[in-house]
Design a protein around this nucleic acid. Structure first.
Lengths: 340, 340
DNA sequence: TTGAAAGCGCTAACAC
DNA sequence: GTGTTAGCGCTTTCAA
């Protein structure tokens, strides 16, 4: 495996010249540059990023830490981030925080974070203390709703507004008994707590009494858990005429549960999700949902990270991404024909 | 940011002793070990992985390179791999090969691969030449059907058998005109070519004439492309009574297209997919599909990689993962009632 | 425009 | 059981 000195020797120059050529430094003769590049090609030389990092600090790699690889929401986020970074000559590596919790080295260990120039960290499921251990000087942007040390940049989704839009929409379309699937009060600002709060607020504002029994908590936000819970609930309470699912994935399970119960969507029961996964266009009928503006989130996360990489002491930003309702067929049309 | 010498100084020992403690080397006094660990904790020391890698070669990180982050098949694979590796004290970082093609440094650049102890590379969409540039000594396991330099370990899915099972199943259930969605002949052993071949073989064996016009090629294996193509096709050819979709994601689009055309599944048209995504349990009706045995693939990929990391000259293995049919509601029941 | 020296933080190899 | 020495491959600094 050739090193920079091998290249230097073969090209008859010093290692510094090779380094300068490879880093695009200006003060190199055109002829020298050409010769070096030829030798690089010839020997198949590739730079050792560990050595570069040890000396200079940079790697060109950005990390994204997500709860799970197999959740489509994070797949979408990662793909968008990857494209955004590729256009600036960097690249993305994605790690999962869930699976490694048991290991000695958490995905959050500084050791691992340090291999990146900066990290975007989805804090779903992570505690304040986990995050507080991260050295303040390390460039991190947090994604998520939890209350986190304010010294970090953080981007929230406007969960309350989103949940409110969803619930108001269902009320507008004639729903009278809306079950909040995956809801609850976790005692702190979390996705679950906030979306449930939005669901409550919308009802209060419309003068609809909020029934705590209409919150259907879920152990895990998986399709199968939701399906089973919804099927059982519908069997014992036929008055339910709508579901607000805490995520689109849960909504998929809700749709299946409704189908299992022999009911029709949206005629018997209406459904609204949250996330606007690509998938939602392809359920039958299409899933009405809340769009959390992933493009906006990615754009601002990269900007915040770049700002922090450039200046580690810049004031931390706390941003809230806009949300909007995407109407499809799982909720009833107001007057016009429903969209496909 | 404290270094190992800081720890050594504070603990009144040499850096080597600190290193030995942190690496769990046996020949360290119990008292010394304890003192070192205390100081590590106190200073918040974390090892510098770049330095370790530069010196020793290992990082504890395994790379997985996939075509796209937002394809659920790879999400599933990544999650499984991550768990498998976590149990051996290592961790997984996932990179995307698609987005960076335009960049100077491909995801395949040795520079980037080198930051891992070993890499599992999904070769969908990558060319022979791309892969051939990888230094033979670097531990890589290839995942995919393309013809690749035989010096690499490679794991294939048994695409022909899978496609055959799918097609035979449709024939068994009374289908007479089966469209292969996403099929084609790419002129070399690729997922597309092989699955199409299996579809042909099954028909030939049953004495059903193979109609080349029944291959519906797709630019991209996305739900929306499939949906549009299927809708259009059904409009002009009502004799179609089944679709074999090249992937489950395509199958999702096929189901939507059939629905758009006002036909019912499985009564009017039957559908079989390929991948056995979790999603397939939640379409209505559930998606009949081919299971490519991801658990088997992950287990064997890790084993092959470990073998190669341990001995870079071990003979390359070419493995074929078993496939089987998963019957759900998009194909007709033979005699018993259909599963949910 | 090019090069020599120093050292980033760690561990292999060997001494004690 | 613990310490010393050397050096992984690169870039920073400074000199030529």
């Amino acid at each position: 495996m050739p090193t920079m000195s091998d290249v230097a020797r073969a090209a008859g120059v010093s290692v510094m010249t090779v380094s300068n050529v490879l880093n695009g430094k200006p003060r190199v003769g055109a002829e020298t540059r050409l010769r070096v590049l030829e030798v690089v090609d010839e020997l198949g030389y590739e730079i050792n990023l560990s050595a570069r990092r040890l000396r200079s600090g940079r790697t060109g790699a950005i990390g994204l830490v997500v709860p799970r690889f197999d959740h489509p929401y994070f797949g979408d986020l990662a793909a968008r981030l990857s494209s955004a970074l590729a256009s600036t000559g960097r690249h993305l590596a994605v790690e999962q925080s869930d699976a490694s919790k048991e290991g000695e080295l958490a995905a959050l260990s500084l050791a691992r974070l340090q291999t990146y120039d900066g990290v975007i960290l989805s804090v779903v499921g992570l505690g304040y203390a986990d995050i507080d251990r991260i050295r303040p000087s390390f460039p991190v942007v947090l994604l998520g709703e939890q209350h986190m040390p304010p010294r970090f940049d953080q981007i929230h989704i406007d969960n309350i507004t989103g949940a409110r839009l969803a619930t108001e929409h269902l009320l507008d379309r004639g729903a009278r008994r809306i079950v909040m699937v995956g809801g609850g009060d976790e005692g702190h600002a979390s996705m679950v707590t906030l979306r449930t709060r939005g669901w409550e607020l919308a009802q209060q504002e419309r003068g609809v009494p909020v029934d705590d029994a209409a919150v259907l908590p879920l152990d895990r936000f998986e399709m199968s858990s939701a399906r089973i819970a919804v099927r059982a609930l519908l069997a014992r309470d036929p008055s339910i005429d709508a579901f607000f699912a805490i995520t689109d994935q849960v909504a998929m399970g809700v749709l299946a549960g409704i189908h299992d119960a022999g009911l029709r969507v949206p005629d018997d029961v209406q459904v609204v999700g949250f996330d606007n996964l690509a998938l939602g266009e392809f359920t039958m009928p299409g899933l009405t949902t809340i769009d959390p503006s992933n493009a906006w989130i990615v754009e601002n996360a990269v900007a915040a990270l770049d700002r922090r990489i450039a200046d580690r002491d810049s004031a931390p930003q706390h941003l809230v991404s806009p949300v909007h309702l995407v109407e499809r067929g799982t909720s009833r049309a107001s007057r016009a024909a429903p969209s496909p």
